[in-house]
Simulated assay, not measured.
Amino acid sequence: MVSAIGLRVYKIGAHPRRDATPLPLVDKKSGIDVPSYIASFVNQNKTQNKKDSAERSWYFEKMEETKPGCCRGYIHYGTFGFESNFVDGKTKAKKYKRSVTDVEEIPLYFEFWTSNDNRTALAAFQSFQGRSCINILFSDIQEDFEKKTNNILTFKKLLPSDSRGSVYNTAPVKNIKLIKRNAGNDITDTYIETDGTSLVDFEISISAKRKSSLGALSDVYSRFKKSEESALIYDGVEFSEAYAEVRVGNKLRKIGLFGAHGDAGVIDLTGQVKRGINGHPTFDSMKNETKSILDSIYKSIYGAKR
């Protein structure tokens, strides 16, 4: 889903530095207050954080906040460190030469949410055309949290291929697509004769008929064999990427089962969100889609509305 608008959802937790036993999000004994910490971290990072070694930068733009630990807005993610030319796509005229120190920033939607009883905290982060700032953000927030509390802050990606208890396990599957990129003639010649030297992207799509499904996601996933290279094996072919279209809440959504660029667990919102004239998803459309997804996830965990 390199060109997609994606959303990754994480469950936030905490545990002592040398003990993996989970701690409450608000724990007087250990001095932990995760919701208040998140609010403070967002407020303290509203100006550009430059990482020269990674040639990356980021900062928060908070748009809305309902209470500590519940806020949404944009993470402005920047790249720098190389020259490039900006050319008018219509006239082909060169408009600007980007220097090594110029930072190209894109807005990526984010949301932190904590339940009223402080039992659950979730986070959602947007990706744009395969670009995401979660690695650099997680590194900074986890380092800061450990320094201030002497405890570890965790972000567990909610994966559709998790074992029992996954929030996606019971979701009905309408379609599953398996992809093997750069497949050779040993595979393609079974279906179509090639010149023996060309590489192609080989895809298999399996769809359910109208008003039916292929079964629950956990059942569908278990029908495939897994290889040691983290690929799915179907009909003797190893596929390096897999996506499923499942019902999450009241909508069908495309979710990565696994693949390149950390696509596992990424919910594809490309066809769901409205884009502004700047080419990026509008804030309201990202907010509405994220709310629907988080509501559905919370309900699947606790059987109640968020």
Rank of each mutant, 00 (worst) to 15 (best):
L294E: 05
Y77I: 14
K299Y: 13
Y221M: 10
K209P: 02
A20L: 14
V220R: 05
Y191K: 10
S99E: 11
G73Y: 07
N43F: 08
H15I: 06
F60Y: 09
K177P: 02
T197R: 08
V266E: 09
G165W: 03
K274M: 08
F283A: 12
I179D: 00
A4W: 06
Y59A: 03
L25K: 03
S3H: 03
G184K: 08
S300P: 04
N175A: 15
V200Q: 06
Q142P: 08
T190K: 03
E64A: 12
A231T: 06
K67R: 03
F138N: 07
I141A: 01
K254D: 11
I204M: 04
V100N: 08
N150Y: 06
K177E: 08
G262K: 05
T188H: 13
K67N: 03
E238G: 04
N135K: 04
T170P: 01
N169F: 09
T170I: 11
N250P: 01
S227Q: 05
F145W: 03
S3K: 05
T149G: 12
K62S: 11
S30D: 09
M1E: 11
S163R: 03
A242Y: 07
G259I: 05
V266R: 05
Q44E: 12
G165S: 03
I297G: 06
V2S: 13
E245D: 10
E111A: 11
D268I: 09
F60K: 04
I32F: 07
S166V: 05
D235V: 05
V237T: 06
T197A: 11
Y243K: 02
D33N: 10
T197K: 12
V220A: 08
V103R: 12
L217C: 03
S296V: 04
Y74F: 15
G78C: 14
T120A: 13
E203Y: 08
S166I: 07
I179E: 01
T101F: 12
V266I: 10
S53T: 10
G81Y: 15
T79H: 12
N250D: 13
D88F: 06
K156T: 04
R253V: 07
A20Y: 10
Y77E: 13
G165P: 04
I255F: 13
K177W: 04
T194W: 07
T197E: 11
T190C: 01
K274Q: 12
V87S: 11
N45E: 04
N182P: 00
F258C: 11
N118W: 02
Y77K: 15
G196Y: 06
P16Y: 06
M1H: 11
A4Q: 13
V2R: 11
R56T: 12
